[in-house]
């Protein structure tokens, strides 16, 4: 064999005190065994903050844009019923396309980065929010609407003062589902080069502490957003509070 290739020293020389000794008995620590190590987690929690912040950004931006689009569409469809079927079908197809596949389908068009991830994430929120807004508006009892009209409110006033407030619980329910779903999907955004908690998860799948912390943060974030939307909804609809959830 050619000498240069064959003679590469595997461990030997070099290093000049750089190489740490990992062979002695003490080597079998929790960390090098890829275990669940509370002490390590506490000491290294800060390295998850940047991905977490990024994850929050990815999620919140997607929810904001997704909500604006689907809320507008739903208001349009509320009066023009024929719009419902095509919107549901179109957003339904978007919702069905697997996220990983969608990221890769978008890459040749929009390139790597935040934009690609957002397009995918937003497209998954549309169906959920649209459907709940429409169902919420439909659920408003027609005699309430009639009474409002009888009091002299015009269409616009009926919508904003009666129908939307009464539909808020259903709308919030849609937003909550969209939020938890988006948090989960955003953990794949790193495939599109957009960062998020998927980054550290995938960087060391073997290390249980790592997977547990990063995955746990995903779940906590989802719960936090869920409770946040719930709290806002309760604030806005004081009349529902008497009814047990």
């Amino acid at each position: 064999m050619s000498g240069a290739l064959g003679s590469i020293p595997l461990l030997a020389q070099g290093g000049e005190g750089f190489v740490r000794n990992r062979e002695s008995g003490s080597g079998a620590s929790c960390v090098s065994d890829d275990g669940v190590c509370p002490a390590w987690i506490v000491d290294h929690f800060d390295r998850y903050m940047e991905p977490l912040g990024r994850h929050v950004l990815l999620t919140v931006v997607a929810l904001a844009i997704g909500f604006s689009i689907s809320f507008t569409l739903a208001l349009l469809a509320h009066r023009r019923r024929w719009l419902i079927a095509p919107v549901v079908q179109l957003t339904g197809i978007l919702y069905t396309i697997p996220s990983l596949a969608l990221f890769f389908l978008l890459l040749p068009i929009t390139g790597r980065g935040f934009l690609t991830a957002e397009i995918a994430l937003v497209s998954y929120t549309l169906l959920i929010i649209f459907r709940n807004v429409v169902t919420g508006l439909d659920g408003v009892p027609s005699d309430v609407v009639d009474a409002a009209r009888g009091m002299g409110l015009n269409d616009r006033q009926v919508l904003w003062r009666v129908e939307i407030p009464l539909a808020l619980p259903e709308i919030a329910a849609g937003l909550r589902i969209a939020a938890t779903t988006t948090v989960g999907l955003a953990s794949l955004a790193f495939f599109a080069g957009a960062g998020g908690l998927g980054d550290p998860i995938y960087a060391d799948l073997n290390f249980k502490s790592n997977v547990l912390v990063a995955g746990g943060l995903c779940v906590l974030l989802a719960i936090a957003l869920d409770l946040l939307v719930l709290a806002v909804q309760r604030l806005l609809t004081p009349w529902t509070r008497a009814v047990p959830a």
Partner: peptide, 21 residues
């Protein structure tokens, strides 16, 4: 110049085994 097999193996060790960044 200093990136020989031993050093690179050590660098990998610090990340994969010692969990440094």
């Amino acid at each position: 110049a200093k990136l020989d097999a031993a050093v690179v193996q050590e660098l990998n060790a610090r990340i994969d085994l010692d969990k440094e960044t």
